[in-house]
């Protein structure tokens, strides 16, 4: 079975701005003039049924990759296949199977209602009107846009607009859906509605694939089966969120809140304890202990050593390294 998406050594270079003798360069334009390598030898394989995330800072090349896969941009070199078809040579069968939604999109016509706009776009995929209208009604309920079904698009809020765009993406029942920062600028509830719908859509049926880009670490972590970290057009790592986090932290971190202890020397001698630290919280008359462990095995021994001293454990928390940590360790800087 072909991959839903496959790229081989995919490279895209944007030519710099041409110099025109009649145009004076603007002061800070010099830097933006040279050619930009937006994608640099990207090789990826996304399996059918995967919810795949692309994580990277501004200008990393995420949108460029999606545009190439959506047959809107030609690669400079290398190959890209969607549903087994070459994006350069055979776009028609790809276009039948894909759709794309970008955050902050302003598509459609302001004079049409949300429903009319979505219907219009579905016509470009040959969806019969009756089928299209039934699907739109169903999706509008699912996204909580039903009461805005007859509102003109130029009068709805940006969050409602984004929901409309999402429905536009789903109404053609694509096999592969590209989502470019779909929750950009949305409030918590709207973002959650969208995330949950996307996850159910991929996992609740077979044969559906999503390629998602996002700036939100937690979102990528929560949603994606696998994540590729991309920076300056290069893929730095590609794995499940768990494995990515394991890559940088082979150790686990535990935090405990306990009654003040007399003897803490025994902890250092235990097997599997890499390090620990303690901090007294005088106001609560408690001590906070942080353990860095090779694995979770020593936890039981630590707890019994504490209770043997007659002290009580008030809280025990295992804290995971976040994707953010992974990202910082790889890219050498955080987001934004």
């Amino acid at each position: 079975m072909p991959y839903a998406v496959e790229t081989r050594d995919l490279t895209r270079v944007f030519a710099g701005k041409k110099k025109h003798w009649w145009r004076k360069p603007k002061p800070n334009e010099e830097e933006s003039r040279g050619p930009v390598t937006a994608l640099d030898g990207v090789s990826l394989q996304i399996r059918e049924g995967e919810l795949f995330g692309l994580l990277g800072p501004n200008g990393a090349g995420k949108t460029t990759l999606i545009k190439i896969l959506a047959t809107l941009l030609l690669p400079t070199s290398g190959k890209a296949f969607v549903a087994g078809n070459d994006v350069t040579k055979d776009p028609f069968p790809i276009r039948q199977r894909i759709n794309m939604v970008s955050g902050g999109e302003t598509s459609g016509y302001g004079l049409l209602t949300t429903r009319e706009n979505i219907w219009m776009f579905s016509q470009f995929y040959g969806v019969p009107s009756k089928v299209s209208k039934a699907r739109i009604d169903e999706l509008m309920h699912a996204f909580g846009l039903w009461d805005k079904r007859d509102a003109k698009v130029r009068l709805i809020s940006s969050g409602q607009r984004q929901k409309m765009n999402m429905i536009r993406g789903f109404v053609t029942e694509p096999d592969i859906l590209f989502l470019d920062e779909p929750t950009l600028g949305l409030d918590v509830n709207a973002a959650r509605t969208i995330r949950e719908y996307v996850m159910n859509w991929v996992r609740g049926q077979s044969g559906k694939t999503v390629l998602l880009t996002t700036h939100y670490m937690a979102e990528a972590d929560e949603m994606c089966d696998r994540i590729a970290i991309i920076d300056k057009g290069k893929i730095l790592a590609c794995d499940t969120p768990e494995n990515l986090k394991r890559m940088i932290h082979t150790q686990t971190t535990f935090r405990l809140e306990v009654d003040p202890l007399q003897d803490t020397s025994t902890f250092q001698r235990m097997d599997g304890v890499v390090n620990f630290s303690l901090r007294d919280d005088a106001s609560k008359n408690r001590t906070e202990l942080t353990f860095i462990l090779e694995n979770e095995a020593p936890v039981a021994e630590i707890l019994s050593a504490i209770t043997a001293q007659g002290a009580k454990v008030h809280a025990l928390r295992k804290t995971e390294p976040t994707l953010e940590d992974v990202f910082i360790s790889m890219v050498g800087r955080g987001f934004e």
């Binding site: 047959t71 028609f92 276009r95 759709n99 970008s102 302003t106 598509s107 776009f121 470009f124 995929y125």
Partner: peptide
């Protein structure tokens, strides 16, 4: 400019 063109060009029509 308003972002419709890419959606049109991406469609199979």
């Amino acid at each position: 400019e308003i972002g419709n063109l890419q959606l049109y060009m991406m469609a199979p029509m």
